[in-house]
Structures are given as C-alpha cells and as structure tokens.
C-alpha cells in the first residue's frame, strides 16, 4: 500500500470538510446570538442578567433576565429532585432485579418516554396532567400548608410544580438509560465480593454498586439537567408564562417562566429591535448555560464509560 492514491486523499479531505459542519453550526449560532444581543447588552450591561423587570412599552423599555434564569434553574432542579431517584430506581431494577424476560420490554417502555414529542407532553400537561396536579396535590397541600411561602399562591395547576414534574418525566429516559449502562459496567467481581461477605442485595447495591458508579451516575444526572434546561414546548404550555418580577419562582404553586418558554412565547411577537435583542440575549445565556452543563456531563460520562471498556469482559 505504498502507492499514493489521490482518491484517498480527496475522500479524507472531503470527509474532514464535512465533519467541520458541526463547527459551522456552532459558529453561526454563536455569532447570531452574540451579535443579536449586542443592543440589549449595550443598553443595560450586565444589569440585563441581574434585572427583574421586563417592560417592552415604548419609552419605558427595561429588560432583565433574572426571573427566567431562576425559573429555568428551579424547574430543572425540581425535575432532578423527582426524576433522578426514579431513574436510578429504574436502572437498578433493570440491571439487578428484573426477571430476564421483563428487562427488554421495560427498558423499551422507558425509552419510549423519550420518543414522545415534547409538544405532546405539553398538550397532555395542559389538558390532563395539570388537573391531576391541581386536584390531588396542590389543592390539598394548599389547604393545609398554604401558609408556607413555598406553597403560597392560588393552585391552578399551571405553575412551577407542574412544569418541574413534566420535566422530571421527560428526563427519566436519559438519566435511566445512562445509569443503566453505568451500573451494568460495575465489574461483577465487586458484587461477588460483597455477596460473599453476606450482604443483602440492597446493601450490595447501595454500598458497592452505586458508590462504584457514582461519578457516571452523576454525569447522567448532569446530562438530564442539560435536557431539562433546554426543554421548551412542554414547559411553555404548563408553566403559566408570567413576565417580570412576578415570574420569579418564589412558590411551587405560582406561575413562572423559563428562558426557553420566554423565547418561545415572545420572540416572534417582539416588534421593537431592542425587545428582540433582549430575547436573543436570553437565548445567549441559555446557550452558555447549556454548553457548560453538557461539557461537564460529557467529561464525566466519557471518563466512566472508558473505565467500563477496560473493566468488563
């Protein structure tokens, strides 16, 4: 194979150029968002990220992104609080407990959750799930614990809690399937060692398996967080979409707004260039947040799955 053949070089260069399409996408996106948010950043500076007001009325323009940043963080946080334990439970069940015959169908059903389009989660959330939350959780809790600030507000089902729970459902497939891989990658020798000293299954899983796979599961959680942060349609349809200081998520039972729902609701409707720039500025912040989260997740997950490559037969 010493003969030089230009076809190979052409092919390699062609593939290399096309592989750069990802970079092109990233650069175009970053450029669009940065250049688009210049006007609002010039006008308000970093105060744009600390401000809470959002007023597009002419002559009174003021834009602050803080409530939506908080809205995103709080709903994603709820999603993790609820979604992660469920996902780990599912992963443990699938790897360690489920009868062989059930493993594939259950894993498959859980993965189907990821196949349902976001807008259908939203539709279901708006017309069905919202009433479950309102009638079976919010109204009883509000009646007994409504004096607590985090349960204050009028429970009508389109709020932070509903959005957080829907997000929790939506991240389950991601977190569960990666956790499953991670738990599956824990060497059997570790389990055998633990069983041999008389541990029950629960003890083996808790003290050995989960702690061995800790950083991989953490990576899965971060990846789930990334998904929750970027999710748009389902959240937009159930979060209640408030604007300005009212959108600061102070209570589970109050409507709020996330960065992505704000953009979905308002971007196309914004008429003034400063207002449009404000939406793009929020988009820029969302992009940065999602970049940080995803890079962190990928670093963690790849590190662990590399270990797996060596450890499992």
């Amino acid at each position: 194979m010493n003969r030089k053949f230009t076809g190979d070089n052409v092919f390699k260069i062609l593939a290399a150029v096309i592989a750069a399409s990802a970079v092109v996408i990233l650069i175009v996106t970053a450029y669009t968002l940065v250049s688009g948010s210049v006007p609002v950043l010039q006008r308000f500076g970093l105060g744009f990220f600390a401000g809470t007001q959002w007023n597009p009325v002419e002559g009174r323009e003021i834009f602050g992104a803080l409530p939506y940043v908080l809205g995103t963080l709080v709903t994603s946080g709820i999603a993790l609080l609820i979604g992660v334990p469920l996902s780990i439970g599912i992963a443990v069940f699938l790897v360690e407990m489920a009868p062989k015959a059930l493993r594939v169908p259950i894993a498959y059903l859980v993965e189907l959750l990821a196949a349902v389009p976001s807008v259908i989660y939203g539709l279901w959330g708006l017309f069905v799930f919202r009433f479950w939350i309102q009638n079976y959780i919010e109204i009883p809790v509000s009646n007994s614990l409504g004096w607590l600030p985090i349960f204050s507000g009028t429970p009508f089902g389109l709020d932070v809690l509903t959005a957080g729970i829907i997000l929790a459902i939506m991240i389950i497939p991601t977190v569960a399937s990666i956790s499953k891989e991670v738990i599956g990658a824990v060497p059997n020798s570790i389990r055998e060692g633990a069983y041999s000293i008389g541990a029950t299954k629960w003890e083996v899983i808790r003290h050995w398996v989960l702690s061995y796979g800790r950083s991989g599961i953490f990576g899965a959680v971060i990846l789930g967080l990334g998904r929750a942060v970027g999710e748009t349609m389902a959240v937009t349809m159930v979060i209640g979409n408030t604007i300005g200081p009212a959108a600061i998520p102070t209570s589970l039972f109050k409507p709020s707004q996330t960065m992505s729902s704000l953009i979905a609701n308002g971007f196309l409707e914004s008429t003034a260039s400063l207002e449009k720039s404000a939406y793009i500025g929020v988009g820029l912040f969302l992009l940065l947040l999602s970049l940080i989260i995803n890079i962190a997740a990928h670093v963690m997950v790849t590190r662990v799955l590399k270990v797996k490559g060596g450890a499992v037969e």
Binding site: A19, A20, A22, V23, I25, L26, V28, T29, T32, L33, G36, L223, G226, R227, V229, G230, E231, T232, S260, I263, A264, F267, L268, Y279, I280, G283, L286, L287, S290, L291, I293, N294, I295, A297, H298
Partner: peptide, 22 residues
C-alpha cells in the same frame, strides 16, 4: 469536532430556531 458534535447534540432546540430565523 467530536466534542463540538457532542455539545450540539444537546443544544436547546429553541436556540436553533433563533439562528435559523436570523
């Protein structure tokens, strides 16, 4: 390129909308 692809895979889709619009 691999890292960039990884990152893009998890991009919020709404941002892609802003880009394509502009």
């Amino acid at each position: 390129m691999r890292t960039v692809n990884d990152v893009l895979t998890e991009f919020p889709s709404i941002i892609v909308g802003i880009t394509a619009f502009s």
